[in-house]
Design a binder for these strands. Structure first.
Length: 237
DNA sequence: TATATGATTGCCT
DNA sequence: GGCAATCATATAG
């Protein structure tokens, strides 16, 4: 019988404050493991997922959006395009669409004026799982496929948008107040958190900016980019 | 202005 | 395992 995480009954789920995000990006990414993603949905009621996988993106990082235009060349910082929104106040939502219908949720980190963000890549459903199931395609069979990927969890929570919509409703919103926010969960000890290379990127593949809860089935299934490259080129470590 | 690519997913073989 | 979907954004010219 599978052991499922449960909501501590005595927990008051209050939003993590701006000071939580006003820190180095990787510290926030690490500490979000085990935190609760909460959305008080007008359609689905309260949805709660426990964060089990994150990735950090920051200014020293060629994988960050608009990195070349923003930091390249003379090293002068000039926020351009999407990257400008990563300079926003800590705790701001950074939501963007990739490929066609996939929307990815990030939270902005570091002091205002310093670029950084954490991508939420996997959560474990704790509350409102029926609604999450309804929000995902009927073809989804395994429970873990509900939320074991950055585009999957936004769809399960209903914080994605329709194709053709240029921006997300939540892009630029404050994640330190309802309806969409993070709350403290049971802290996850260091021996259950692993850092490694990120997934699906082509630059900065060696930077260990990805954090997962070891062994949790809601960690996304993709191979880290450095492993993928090593396989493709036939190189062994 | 023109072209290449992507912080993914799901369906196909 | 491979690859299409589908278009905004990044980058080159």
């Amino acid at each position: 019988m599978a052991v499922r995480a449960h909501l501590p009954t005595c927990y008051v789920m209050s939003p993590l404050p701006p000071s939580f995000y006003d820190r180095p990006t990787l510290a926030v990414a690490r500490d979000l493991i085990g935190a609760l993603l909460v959305y008080d949905s007008p359609d689905d009621g309260r949805l709660v997922g426990r964060v089990v996988e994150t990735e950090g993106y920051r200014a020293d990082d060629p994988a960050m959006h608009g990195w070349r235009a923003t930091f390249g060349g003379d090293g002068f910082v000039r926020p351009i395009g999407r990257a400008a929104d990563l300079f926003a106040a800590p705790g701001t939502a950074y939501v963007y669409r990739i490929h066609h219908t996939n929307w990815l949720l990030n939270v902005v980190t570091e002091p205002e004026g310093v670029a950084g963000g954490v991508l939420i890549r996997g959560v474990e459903p704790l509350e409102g799982e029926d609604a999450m199931t309804a929000n995902r395609p009927a073809s989804v069979r395994r429970r873990r496929d509900l939320t074991n990927g950055p585009g999957k969890l936004t769809q399960a929570f209903g914080i994605n948008e329709a194709p053709g919509v240029p921006r997300s409703r939540f892009h630029g919103t404050d994640l330190t107040v309802p309806p969409l926010f993070f709350a403290a969960g049971e802290p996850v000890p260091d021996d259950r958190v692993a850092a490694g290379s990120r997934i699906g990127i082509s630059r900065g593949i060696d930077l260990p900016y990805r954090f997962v809860e070891v062994g949790n089935p809601f960690v996304s299934p993709g191979l880290p980019s450095d492993v993928r490259v090593a396989r493709k080129t036939g190189k062994r470590e």
